[in-house]
Design a protein around this nucleic acid. Structure first.
Lengths: 205, 205
DNA sequence: ATTTTTGCACTGACTAGTCAGTGCAAAAAC
DNA sequence: GTTTTTGCACTGACTAGTCAGTGCAAAAAT
């Protein structure tokens, strides 16, 4: 039943080293400005190994995108599920998802940079991969919003896709700004600022 | 002793053509993937002309950033000022600034893409230019938030820099998503979804 | 008036270099 | 003994930046 495990442990480890190296370099410099030689060197691997494991530089990058967004989606979903299990409201679930999102960005800042930098480009090879992968992540938020509207926690007037996009954007940009321009702030600081926005506790006292 | 007009009309026109060509190409493909030959060709100009007008590809790009963010800042400031003049509240001013931001992104989507894609990169030549230029734009929002707190419209507990960053991010990402994934929506749709978030009218009925 | 000079804006062929991807034999790991 | 990795030389396409030269209009010299 196993056997056909086409990727050996060894190969997986090599690939992981390559992802790790590529994500940092591409986040800093962009895809085109990053050379395959650099990636190989940083991963401590021969250039030929890159091409033994991936058919091209572009393919390596696309796999990286899939892998990274997969991690994010799992983490968002886990936050939503845990809140549900312990009987929390949907708005609490959203709040926990914001925290999970911030945690992800805190752990993988380079991936986040790279994702944002590529997401809205047009005419690039991996555009369709990105579209799929983005929808995966946003869908988790949309589902919780939808449930919250159904059980009356949120107004029926909200526009679910737009609100989901805005929430994701808010977290993404606030977190990147935090990392880039105010790294001394704590995750809790950032979380509570965003949470306040979510709960409409900005205006009024 | 006159001749102060150091840049002739002709040169200015050429530069404008180059900005126009560069902004679209770089938004689509990124800085490194865009060649100077492409820019020149799209602008209908010889390659040498690019180097006659700018000392390098990087300098052309930096000028472009300065120019674009300048436009945005002016537009945000105008929205704030007009609201103040007609005696509106600070929260109304924020609302108008959201609209102005959306309008800007609607008019210059390519510039916005390019800005977002480059903003959080590290180790790039134009990093310092970006820092300055970003602060310019965010400062306008921070000022209005600060005034709103001072006159009691907003809670004293809000974290001004973080909230400003989150608001800008919310608008930026929602607008780019709108353009990329739901272009059929109207500006008013998007504006009212965001406005609802700002006013805390998401939760509750 | 006509010719010559000057300076600006622009041109495009050319240079020197870079980089994705290949090929392959030998070694290491499994 | 099969799979994976290494090391390294090589290729060919592509690219940032340069530079000698062109076109042209206004000024200066004749």
């Amino acid at each position: 039943m196993d056997a056909m495990d086409s990727t050996s442990t060894r190969r997986r480890a090599t690939r992981a080293k390559l992802y790790e190296a590529a994500v940092t370099l591409i986040a800093e410099q962009g895809f085109s400005a990053t050379t395959v030689d650099e990636i190989a060197e940083r991963a401590g691997v021969a250039k030929g190994t890159v091409y033994y494991n991936f058919k091209s530089k572009t393919e390596l990058f696309e796999e990286l995108l899939r892998y990274g967004v997969g991690l994010l989606t799992v983490s968002l979903q886990a936050a939503a599920d845990e809140t549900a299990e312990r009987g929390g409201t949907k708005v609490e679930a959203l709040d926990e998802m914001i925290r999970a999102g911030l945690g992800f960005i805190d752990r993988y800042p380079a991936f986040t940079q790279l994702y944002v930098a590529e997401l809205w480009r047009t005419n690039r090879a991996w555009q369709s991969t990105l579209l799929v992968v983005r929808q995966q992540a946003v869908a988790v938020v949309e589902t919780v919003l939808r449930e919250a509207v159904e059980n009356g926690e949120l107004s029926e007037e909200i526009d679910i896709p737009l609100t989901a996009a805005a929430l994701v954007g808010m977290v993404l940009v606030a977190a990147l700004d935090w990392q880039a321009f105010q790294p001394e702030r704590s995750l809790d600081d950032v979380h509570s600022a965003l949470s306040r926005l979510l709960h409409g506790r900005v205006s009024g006292r």
